[in-house]
Design a protein around this nucleic acid. Sequence first.
DNA 1: GTCTATATAAGGATAGAC
DNA 2: GTCTATCCTTATATAGAC
Lengths: 191, 191
Amino acid sequence: MYSALMSTADRLVESTRELLWERGYVGTSPKAILERAGAGQGSMYHHFKGKPDLALAAIRRTAEDVRATAEGVLGGPGTPYERIEAYLLRERDVLRGCPIGRLTMDPEVIASDELRAPVDETLDAVRELIAGIVEEGKEQGLFGPALDGEEIAATVLATVQGGYVLARASGSPAAFDAGVRGLLSLLAPPA
Amino acid sequence: MYSALMSTADRLVESTRELLWERGYVGTSPKAILERAGAGQGSMYHHFKGKPDLALAAIRRTAEDVRATAEGVLGGPGTPYERIEAYLLRERDVLRGCPIGRLTMDPEVIASDELRAPVDETLDAVRELIAGIVEEGKEQGLFGPALDGEEIAATVLATVQGGYVLARASGSPAAFDAGVRGLLSLLAPPA
DNA sequence: GTCTATATAAGGATAGAC
DNA sequence: GTCTATCCTTATATAGAC
């Protein structure tokens, strides 16, 4: 239930965002959305064409958030190594996982080009950001010339996304942290 | 639909395994299982207590498979680096993802200690195998002494699990392969 | 814009015949 | 052991009143 200061349409989008994060697309029903938003059937079908339309609005908003957060951390101060380190070590609600990455395990999201697009674009954008930082680090001699920016970026992002998997399996953030520390030890510039 | 040589109970477990892989627990209905197995309602509730019971049997079988495959590759010939490389490069149906790892995004699996247990145990067992191999490699001077076996193992497993996420987002295995190559370039023993 | 019917299908399970 | 019939709830959507 949200502030009365939010419009009904916004409350619907917000509760959909939460439920998509917690339960995915197939696990989220219009009924659950309406209850959480404190709205009735009529409101939802007035503002949105149906569940897919509402989900698309929710996913787009979440995609913007995730992207902005990554840009904020990766665009911060410090050496290329430090910026990647900051991205890997930033505060995360590890056991909740990534609200965008988790959607890739949803069959209906993957089956729909429209729903998948914002997911793909977000992960791709973050990957490109990291790739650029790695290339910058190579120029500065921080990373070996044998490393490929695109590849390392994929490794960094995969370690994060896979870290969520390991953490949720064990019910503890420890495995996420271990994976990140392992990656940082591999990336660390020679002392 | 399966061979008539399989028992009804086995056909039910097999079709459940497939559906859990494709659609997860919340996305899999008894009806869909029955149709794929070519069985009726009665058979399912005769052999299993219900959906959670059948899913548990299916998850346990898949967990055994995944574990055996990993043990096979990681226990093969070669140096520690080569065995980890073999694990990372082995043939995978990348776009289908990991049948065990994908379950961690399922709210009902995570909410049930019984369903989550085989998932946790499987990923943990593979992690321990890799950790032992890394420690072995350190003794042989293949990996730097600054690396921690448990941490690197978590990184390796996370790269694989996260690689599936990136691949499914983009609809192509390329990102998985890139992440793996990036990790291998970081792990590579100095020439 | 929002609410309350109402509708059809699917989810999940039980009962009892064969 | 398997099948069909039946049950209650939820999923998703439409219709029409206010």
